[in-house]
Amino acid sequence: MNAEDNRASQPSAADSASVAGSADAEPELDPAEKKRRDARAARDARDRRLVRRLKQGDERAFQELVHTYQDRIFGLVYRMIGNRQEAEDIAQEVFISVYRGIANYRGEGRFYTWLYRIASNTTKNRLKYLKGRNFHRADDIDESPAAHTKGKDGGPVVALQSVVHGPEATVQGNRLEQAIQREIANLEPEHRLLIVLRDIQGHTYAEILAITGLQQGTLKSRLHRARLALKVRLEPYLE
């Protein structure tokens, strides 16, 4: 585990703030928001149990943690890097870092954000390494992405058909998805991370602040710049 990952093991102020924020609930919550908070509390409780078992040397707890988070971590890395094989390798490295560093995790912040911090740091480090080796992630983007994706119900999905209409919807939808994937992977690493966390995986600002350690103003202005950069790159496809 590198120094950056070690820092990731300490809960950030933003993480603590978000946790504290959730404890000081507003007097009135709409049912959807209440449901989300309940789900998050249940997830955190489950994670705490798994982490405790893992620290005691329970191999099954580690297996459960990997199965719980493998798709989200793999998705984050894949969307950032654009190469399936490389993404798999990095995602594996993330879970190995978790396994080896779990003793350093004091459980003060949420496990979920700790895991994401390790994933984002590992991916950014690999991107630096690959940049030095003149790595081109485009090799992998031509493969059919629909073959590796799933719908919200877990079933297969044909990507972006709802956005592209007409008889060639499938072909155009896949082409658009490939273009988006390619252009995201051409952004600066920090911009990729924010686009993937916020716009693809739908994390809240509080979660992104906890993962990245940014200030709220910085997050918003940086996210704005990331979106503008992606918009410029994707303009030919969106006209």
Partner: peptide, 12 residues
């Protein structure tokens, strides 16, 4: 954003 948010989830 309407297009980017339509990107499907990726499976490990």
């Amino acid at each position: 954003l309407s297009v980017v948010r339509e990107l499907p989830d990726v499976e490990a």
